[in-house]
Design a protein around this nucleic acid. Structure first.
Lengths: 202, 202
DNA sequence: TATAATATACCAACCAGTTGGTATGTCGAT
DNA sequence: ATCGACATACCAACTGGTTGGTATATTATA
């Protein structure tokens, strides 16, 4: 329904430019220039910069959702292996330039949390939706490997995401992904210890 | 040397407003209004908004450095206890409003990493300096409790900081600190497992 | 021919930074 | 002590440029 090519160009441009510059530093003209389409068209498709970003977040959620749903690790039978596979998958992505592996939502949250409630809610919903997939695996893995542990599967999903978001910050600060790789190696080690394979209960 | 009261008002105001709104969304007028001093004075003390932020980052580093140096956990004799004490200390701070416990540097990095090299370098230096203190404890604790482990003390320091930064993002996204508390509980559990107390070698 | 899509030109508000000037010292010479 | 020269601190008003958003006209499409 929302598939007009120019509209999509604006959305793709917004995701790219905001990941590089942030929300406030990105002007509508910047987005139009990146999209290669004029401002008249912009305000024909979106009634404001904020509304474009809501659409961009929606697209981001759909796109990243599909990427992870189709990733090979998703087809592993064991939920513990899927969680570790998720981490390995994120490590593999770190080869690309920083603006391509960093998270649009994490970048946005820090800028808009006091000023744009609608954007904040959309970011929260997107991140929480992504985490839900991790939580499902964490719950299944907990039932198998750590049924009596005193942490919740939900908290494991949020922890994994927090490590990722923090790692993106350090990748940006150091302008290289190695710190992020080391961080994810620690995360992987922690997950291995949370779900000790010896304890598997059939 | 740099102790003029108006200058300090601008620095304090900048830290407060940028933690709330971010760098790009904060105007010089915003900072002057918060400081209660006029714009003429601003450009008397600082030649640009960027230069003010460099001074603000410097002040931030000195201030937070003193807070952690004076914290009770610093006086614990055992380096492992100091690392866990650091995490507990950060958990305790989470009672305050979000803009008061979030990190200025982590907020800034995401906005300036492609556009303001001087600010980025200052943020990196500040975060790395703070991490150095953790690394010193991690190195000492490793020698005592995990001398043969295959991770470095440096990577532990960065991991701790990444969890914190990621937790701030989620606190902002959910507008409450509970997620951050849960994350830090996981971090604490991981540190406990990295330095198993049973393995202490005298 | 009607409607959706786009371009160009434009506006009021806002931005970082400047200007010209005032108030308040301070310090050496008288 | 006091006067003049100078520096620091500050302010209100302004400047040139940018911003998000609008108005209007033109072009493609159905």
């Amino acid at each position: 329904m929302h598939a007009h090519p120019s509209r999509q160009k604006f959305i793709d441009a917004a995701i790219a430019v905001v990941r590089e510059q942030g929300y406030a530093a990105t002007s509508v003209d910047d987005i139009c220039a990146r999209a290669g389409v004029g401002k008249g068209s912009f305000f024909h498709h979106f009634k404001s910069k904020e509304e474009l970003l809501l659409a961009a977040i929606e697209h981001w959620n759909a796109f990243t959702g599909a990427v992870f749903a189709d990733a090979p690790f998703r087809r592993l039978a064991d939920p513990r292996a899927r969680l570790l596979g998720y981490v390995d998958f994120r490590i593999a992505i770190l080869d690309r330039p920083i603006p391509e592996f960093a998270c649009l939502l994490g970048t946005l949250v820090q800028e808009v949390y006091q000023s744009h409630p609608a954007l904040l809610a959309a970011c929260d919903a997107g991140m929480s939706g992504h985490i839900d997939d991790l939580v499902a695996d964490a719950a299944a893995a907990k039932a198998l490997y750590a049924p009596d542990a005193d942490w919740t599967p939900e908290s494991v999903g949020f922890f994994m995401q927090a490590v990722l978001q923090g790692s993106f910050i350090f990748a940006k600060a150091k302008n290289e992904a190695e710190v992020a790789r080391d961080n994810l190696a620690h995360l992987r080690r922690y997950l291995e210890s949370l779900f000790p394979p010896a304890a598997k209960k059939e």
